[in-house]
Simulated scan of single mutants.
Amino acid sequence: MNKLIKLTKQIYSSDIIGYVMIFAAGTLWGTIGLFVKLLSGVGANSTLTAFMRLFMGFLILVPVLFFMGGIKMFEIDKSGLIQCLLLGVLSQALFNYCYNVSIGVVGVATASILLYAAPVFVCIMSKFIFQEQIGMLKIFSLVLNIIGCFLMVTGGNLSYLKLSVIGIIFGLASAFLYSLVTIIGKIASGSVHPFTIVFYSFLFGWLTLGIFTSPWESIAGVSSFKFWIYSIGYGLIPTVGSYLFYMKGLSKNLETSRVPVIASVETVVATLIGVVLFSEKLNFINVLGIIFLLSSIAMMNMKFKEKGKEAEIPK
């Protein structure tokens, strides 16, 4: 029994649990499309949907933080507050704006594929900020991940793709802003409780969206029992739940460049939800994309013993 307890503590304190948390966060993020469709079905537009996600997530976190540690959970220093401000404004509010513009110009498929450039941005920034190594296996995993996402989104049908300079610029901008969640979150998690980071990033995010999009009239126009139930679910599952797992995982001893590839499991979950709940078709190319994406996640975590030390394959 003592050996089991000791082993459990070792696993929890190691990077294994961190990567499991990132995987769990990606799984919960995979339900975003479900809630977007549900809210769209009751009349909410994309701007209102983005606002409600952060606003409801913020409200849900208030009692959660009080239950966890009381008023102390809301304490944050100036440096941490600035980092949360950057997360909220850049990686929450501005990201949603750029992504929605990209979707409006080039469509969902192209915008989604451009968003999957985020792991590349994270890998490059991790090299310079955290001095992480970029081995051949890591590069191959990134390429495999992008190909997998491309195949899953398009199903091999290139007619879904639309090209536009403005759409591509906003799509890549959304990918860069999305990648900052991992970079800034990793930096902030060293001095601030992960749950406190999430709380303040949501606060700054919904305030920014509220100031620039004025969603209040839209809420009045679509307010109904279903709207609020869906909004609560949206704020709870792919927002509070996913970000708590993600930030807690980042606080572990993880290689930052691996994180977004593991979190990309959200694409697989989103695809399967579409098949099961909305009777969307899944062809051979889609399945191949799933295999590629899951393979890239597995390869990102491959290690081997070399001269008594654990190393990535290959350097």
Rank of each mutant, 00 (worst) to 15 (best):
residue 307 K to H: 11
residue 199 F to Y: 13
residue 261 V to W: 02
residue 16 I to A: 13
residue 78 K to H: 12
residue 209 L to F: 04
residue 83 Q to V: 04
residue 48 L to M: 12
residue 202 F to G: 02
residue 105 V to R: 13
residue 74 F to N: 01
residue 238 P to N: 11
residue 264 S to Y: 00
residue 249 G to F: 06
residue 44 A to H: 06
residue 279 S to D: 12
residue 93 A to G: 05
residue 289 G to S: 07
residue 304 F to Q: 04
residue 120 V to S: 14
residue 279 S to I: 03
residue 58 F to N: 01
residue 226 K to F: 07
residue 201 S to R: 05
residue 147 I to Q: 10
residue 195 F to I: 07
residue 144 L to H: 05
residue 288 L to G: 12
residue 204 F to V: 09
residue 62 V to A: 13
residue 183 I to T: 15
residue 139 I to S: 13
residue 279 S to L: 01
residue 278 F to R: 10
residue 222 V to C: 07
residue 176 F to I: 15
residue 205 G to T: 04
residue 80 G to Q: 04
residue 172 L to E: 09
residue 181 V to N: 13
residue 42 V to D: 06
residue 129 I to Q: 03
residue 150 F to Y: 15
residue 140 F to V: 15
residue 67 F to M: 13
residue 64 V to I: 15
residue 135 G to L: 10
residue 23 F to D: 06
residue 13 S to V: 03
residue 311 A to N: 06
residue 201 S to Y: 12
residue 253 N to E: 12
residue 153 V to N: 02
residue 22 I to R: 08
residue 170 F to E: 03
residue 165 V to M: 14
residue 205 G to K: 08
residue 289 G to H: 04
residue 232 I to Q: 00
residue 107 G to D: 02
residue 99 Y to E: 04
residue 139 I to V: 15
residue 64 V to R: 03
residue 268 V to G: 07
residue 140 F to L: 15
residue 54 L to A: 15
residue 47 T to L: 11
residue 156 G to H: 09
residue 310 E to D: 06
residue 101 V to Y: 05
residue 83 Q to G: 01
residue 145 N to H: 08
residue 242 S to H: 09
residue 103 I to P: 01
residue 33 G to L: 10
residue 259 V to M: 03
residue 29 W to M: 10
residue 144 L to I: 13
residue 194 P to D: 09
residue 160 Y to K: 11
residue 147 I to S: 09
residue 301 N to L: 15
residue 257 S to G: 07
residue 93 A to T: 09
residue 174 S to W: 08
residue 261 V to N: 04
residue 84 C to N: 06
residue 43 G to C: 01
residue 264 S to F: 09
residue 305 K to P: 00
residue 200 Y to M: 06
residue 188 A to D: 13
residue 264 S to W: 03
residue 2 N to I: 13
residue 73 M to P: 00
residue 298 A to D: 00
residue 158 L to V: 15
residue 124 I to D: 06
residue 224 S to T: 10
residue 39 L to M: 15
residue 31 T to R: 06
residue 303 K to N: 07
residue 250 L to G: 06
residue 255 E to Q: 14
residue 305 K to F: 13
residue 3 K to F: 13
residue 168 I to L: 08
residue 252 K to E: 09
residue 271 T to A: 12
residue 11 I to N: 04
residue 121 F to P: 02
residue 18 G to I: 13
residue 115 L to F: 10
residue 217 E to D: 10
residue 180 L to K: 11
residue 116 Y to D: 03
residue 273 I to F: 05
residue 46 S to F: 08
residue 193 H to A: 14
residue 263 A to K: 02
residue 127 K to Q: 08
residue 265 V to D: 01
residue 309 K to V: 14
residue 51 F to M: 02
residue 239 T to P: 02
residue 274 G to Q: 05
residue 49 T to D: 03
residue 188 A to C: 14
residue 201 S to P: 01
residue 150 F to K: 00
